[in-house]
Each structure stands twice: as C-alpha cells, then as structure tokens.
Design a protein around this nucleic acid. Structure first.
Lengths: 249, 249
DNA sequence: CAGTGGTCTAGACCACCAG
DNA sequence: TGGTGGTCTAGACCACTGA
C-alpha cells in the first residue's frame, strides 16, 4: 500500500504549461506553510509520490531536491524525507531592493534624488564594476525614507550603457524594478557590511549625531553572466535597520 | 563532429566510489579556476559531453546544474552553456567559524574564555534556541584575538544536551570543529548584523572608546533538520572586520 | 529483511535561438 | 532549420537504515 500525500489529495495538471516538478514542489511547500505537514513529519517516498501522481520518479526527485535546496525538507538515505524545522522569521535569502525590504517591514518607502548624472569612475568604483579608472559611470545618490523618516543614504554607480533617465527613476521609485522592466535581471551579487561612524553628510541627512554608529552595506549586483551591473554604498541609521540572511552549506 | 572539453582530455574513472557527476563537476570547476576555460567561453553541449565521457546525458546534466548552483556557469536555452564571470575575491558563501575566518585573513587566531557554565535561558536566548524560558543552557563567553590583538567578544549559548567541556574547548580552540568531532554538523543558520555603540565591557576588552561603532553579528546555527544548535552574539571592532557574503537568486 | 534515497541509463519531446 | 537546454519517462543497481 502506498503512502499518500495530503487529504484531500493534491491535483496536478499534466497539460499545464507549468512544469510538473514545479507544481508538486509548490504544492508540498504550501502544505508545509499551512502546517498540514508538521515539522519532523515524514513525507511519502519518491516511489509513492510517483505512483500517486502517475509520473516518473525522476520528476518527483526534481521537485524534492528543489525543496531541499530551499530548506523546507531534508532527506536521509535509508530513512526517508522529512519536514525541516524553520524559524518563522526571515525567509530573506534572496537579493532584495530597498523598496521591497521596507514594504516587507510594513513601512511606506519613498526617496529623494540628491544627485543624478555621469561622473568618471574613481578607482574603488572602477574596480567594483570591472572598468578602467575614469570611465564614465552613472551616479545616483538618493536619500531614502520609510514612512517619512529618513533611514538611509544610497550612493549607486551603474555601468554607463544602461538606458535610465531621472524621470523614469522618479516614476518607478525602485531601481531594480526599473532595470527588470528593461529586461536586465539581477541574479546575484556580493554584499559587504561594515559598522562606521556618521560623517557630516550622514549626520545632516539622516538626523543623527556626527560619529553615531551606522550600518554600511556595499553591494555589487550582477546579471546572470556574473557581469557587474551596479555598485551601491548604502548607509543606514543603526537601530532602524539590521541585515538578516539565511545561510546553508 | 562533437565539441570536446579540454586538451589533453579529462579522465574519469567509472569504477571510482566518487560519483560520475561529481568527478565531472570538479573537473570543469578546476578548468575554470585554472583559466583553461575563459570567462564567457562556451563549453560543449550536454550531448557532446555525454558522448565524450560515454555516460548518460542526465548525468552530465546533474554536473552542470551543480555548477550553475555554485555560480561557475550559466545556461541559455537554444544557445549553450557559458563560463560565468566571478569576482576573484570572497568565495565566502558558506558558514564559517571565527577560527576559519581569521586564518583566511592570514592572522593567528587565539582566544580567552571569560565564562563557561550553565545558566537559565533569558527570553531572547530561549526563543532563539526554541526552548522554554529559564531552561538550562551552556553559556560560553570568549574574547577573541587575531595575532594578539583583541578583535571580538563572543557570547554563545548552546543547548544543554551537548557534551562539551571547558578543557576540550581550550584544546581545540574552535567550537564548530569541536562539534564536528562529536558528529554534530552545522549545515545552516540565520545571521543578523547590526551596528551598535560600544558599551563599557566592550570598551574595556576590545580597547575601544565607549560609544565607538561596533559590528554585531547574532547567529543561530542549525543542524540539517533545521533544529537550533547554538545562538551566538559576536561583537567586532569596526575597521578590523567586515561581513562579506555572495548572494544568488 | 524490505524500504529508502543516491546514482545512473538511454532515450524522448518541446521551446527557444542563431543563422 | 539544426542545435541547444528544459522537462520527462520508465526503469536499474547500490548503500544505507531500522526492524
């Protein structure tokens, strides 16, 4: 007798343009999130799931491996597949923009453009973007607010070949969203996080005392080829913001 | 005519206990790291590789997908598989211990145990470790040095069922290494990074002025089931240390 | 021992892309 | 139009686990 998943059973659509493995992956994820599969509980074996859905075991494998990757389940040879225990908070293991972050915390994001224009790249910027010193880059300096309160200063440098205008940025608000509209997709990057003292500019714009502790994030974002798109230095008021990340190895 | 990978050709061993997909994955990774495959260069198709190594296309797939996951290559339907551009620095996308980190930067790690003993868990600690308030936990407070210079204060709380003695910790130096010896493997976790002002204790131990900016890392480490193992609050002198991470989505 | 996941086979059809 | 990767099939053998 095969062990079945969920009651009433999950329906999958073999004629859907959505891949079968993806349908199953999302269905199981949903059962876990709804608590219909408890932490530590065993889920049916590959073979049982393959029979239940009348698909190939390899397709089931693909779905389950995806869930392992996302941290929802873990597998032990000879024993079975089990629902992993996850902290409720912080499923934030992906690149997010300021806009997405602030919305996720329940605040209203807004911004003010302090500078928008082309400048020659200084050595640190040139190195980050993999360009020669002095190459023209687009610099966008913005003050960012969460529900009217100033929280961060963003200083972004972009490769010059990106067709972005000040007006478009004002209209959209989110730089990453704007890039996505132009079919430039951020798929990776490197973050460096430091603690620094507020300088006069930060002090003035962010309403903190000079010398106050600040969280500074320097990020290089990359497209799927690994080529750098943007180098941004974001400085946050301590206390308001902390950086959270879920790691796996 | 099939396109071949590398000259002289790579050898794989079908009788090795090392899985075929893993042999191929490591071989290609090695070619990239040695620069024998240039950034942006196309590598042979699945079918060609399958023929070259005389294995199934699905096995080649598994190897290539692993390399995509690690960010070494990217694939485009209809076009091919290409070597991704990766910044040389910071391949640090995994959980590392203080000891590993400091060694990686070329310093000599050492430590001094300031406290070692059982205490009742305060609410924040209990929540992090998923225990009831007041449960006994093992608290290990350490001052950490890089080449004699004090750089951080570590305050770790561990679930009480872990058989660790002060002497073992002194002998090993690295808590994660000690846990690994006892067959407890850290496979994931959540990091939170903040910027804070130094309090009197930090000021005294780390030789900084009271109120100076500090980088604070709060980490919950988990075993493969997702169960919390350790909650640690590590406070670093700003300037010495920054937190680096490579992200993918 | 029977059942599990890990690896592997030898193909298939399709959507997508460049020429 | 031919080649690519994305998805999928219908199995196989093995190492490992718990009973």
């Amino acid at each position: 007798m095969i062990q079945r998943l969920a009651n009433p059973p999950i329906q999958i659509d073999k004629n859907s343009p959505v891949p079968l493995y993806h349908q199953i992956q999302e269905a199981i994820k949903s059962l876990i999130q709804q608590g219909k599969l408890q932490v530590g509980e065993r889920i049916p074996s590959e073979n049982d799931l393959a029979k239940q859905f009348d698909i190939s075991p390899m397709t089931v494998r693909q779905a389950l491996n995806g869930l392992v990757q996302e941290g929802y389940i873990y597998r032990r040879r000879g024993r079975g597949t089990f629902v992993a225990q996850r902290p409720v908070k912080h499923p934030l293991d992906r690149l997010v923009s300021f806009t997405e972050e602030v919305l996720a915390h329940g605040f209203e994001p807004s911004g003010k453009i302090l500078f928008f224009g082309h400048v020659p790249a200084e050595p640190t910027v040139a190195q980050a973007l993999n360009l020669a010193d002095g190459t023209q880059v687009l610099r966008i300096k913005r003050l960012r607010f969460a529900s009217q309160s100033p929280v961060s200063l963003h200083d972004a440098y972009l490769r010059d070949n990106l067709p972005i205008t000040r007006e478009e940025l004002k209209a959209t608000g989110s730089l990453y969203q704007l890039l996505a509209q132009k079919n430039i997709h951020i798929t990776g990057g490197v973050d460096e996080i430091r603690s620094i003292s507020a300088d006069d500019e930060m002090s003035e714009h962010l309403h903190v005392k000079s010398g106050a502790p600040m969280l500074q994030l320097r990020r290089i974002t990359e497209d799927r080829t690994g080529a750098p798109i943007e180098y941004v230095i974001a400085t946050y008021r301590a206390g308001f913001y902390h950086y959270t990340i879920r790691l796996k190895r």
